[in-house]
């Protein structure tokens, strides 16, 4: 049975592929709505490995990926830098919670898209607007989860530390952070996922490069195959970054390594 277990995650994607292949072979769907797998694969091949100029979009993958990674990285980094300490403080210090949580929860109710026009006016089109959007969107899950994690720490852990002579400063790193680690990891993973979503939003505004820009560009040119290629690549990058994030946290923190 374990072998079957391992195959299980691939069953649905496989069936989806199969349906796609069959639909293409039977010509159930016109190609201008959904091109066949072969066409999409070919477009993907050109995009990923083709020499620049040999076909439309050929050879752009590396520069697009680089641009998108920079935007996601900066936005997510900003969100971590602000969200994590603010979240932990909110969960730990009742006064800080009173000060911040009203405003932050009000802002949280605003859909991220609403910030797009403002971002474009403030920062123009390109890196800054996208970083702004990504950072803003990723901030909330990171903030909320680290606040929840810090709030739910059993006071007995702090008491244990105090009676073993642990001061406030060491307490933050030796007790607060590791005890809140499960929620912190959850918040970071959610934040990173949302970061990719808002990357596309930020790049839909007419920036010349990036994985989201490709999708928008391909829509204008009616290249449905390239849209699908872009979607698959973003899905793969999102998944890969999640795996890397988890592995990185485990590498750096004992408490992340030893999550139950």
């Amino acid at each position: 049975m374990p072998r079957f277990d391992r195959l299980l995650p691939w069953v649905l994607p496989f069936m989806l592929m199969l349906a796609w292949v069959l639909a293409d072979a039977a010509q159930l769907v016109p190609a201008y709505l959904l091109p066949g797998p072969a066409k999409v694969l070919e477009a993907g091949g050109h995009y990923l490995f083709g020499k620049a100029g040999s076909a439309p979009y050929a050879g752009r993958f590396c520069s697009d990926l680089q641009a998108s990674l920079l935007r996601v990285g900066c936005g997510f980094g900003l969100a971590v830098l602000l969200g994590l300490p603010m979240g932990l403080m909110t969960g730990r210090l009742p006064l800080f919670q009173k000060l911040t949580s009203g405003l932050i929860n009000a802002l949280r109710a605003v859909p991220g898209i609403c910030w797009l026009p403002l971002g474009m006016v403030w920062f123009g089109i390109g890196l800054h607007t996208t970083v702004f959007l990504v950072g803003l969107a990723a901030f909330f899950p990171i903030y909320l989860n680290s606040a929840g994690g810090a709030r739910q720490i059993d006071p007995i852990l702090y008491q244990s530390g105090a009676m073993m002579g642990v001061g406030r400063f060491r307490g933050v790193f030796a007790i607060l952070l590791p005890a809140a680690m499960p929620s912190i990891v959850t918040g970071l993973r959610l934040g990173l996922g949302i970061a990719w979503a808002y990357l596309v939003l930020g790049e839909l505004t007419g920036v010349p490069d990036g994985l989201g820009a490709i999708i928008m560009d391909a829509r204008m040119l009616g290249r449905i195959d390239m849209i699908i290629v872009g979607i698959v690549i973003i899905a793969a990058m999102g998944r890969l970054s999640d795996v890397l994030l988890k592995a990185g946290m485990k590498l750096c923190f004992k408490s992340a390594r030893r999550l139950p």
Binding site: Q159, S160, M163, M164, I175, A179, R258, P260
Partner: peptide, 16 residues
């Protein structure tokens, strides 16, 4: 302070 060690009733070890 560390001059007074406490053993609690409930599990108070650091789980990590």
């Amino acid at each position: 302070g560390a001059d007074r060690g406490v053993v609690f009733q409930e599990d108070a070890l650091f789980p990590w």
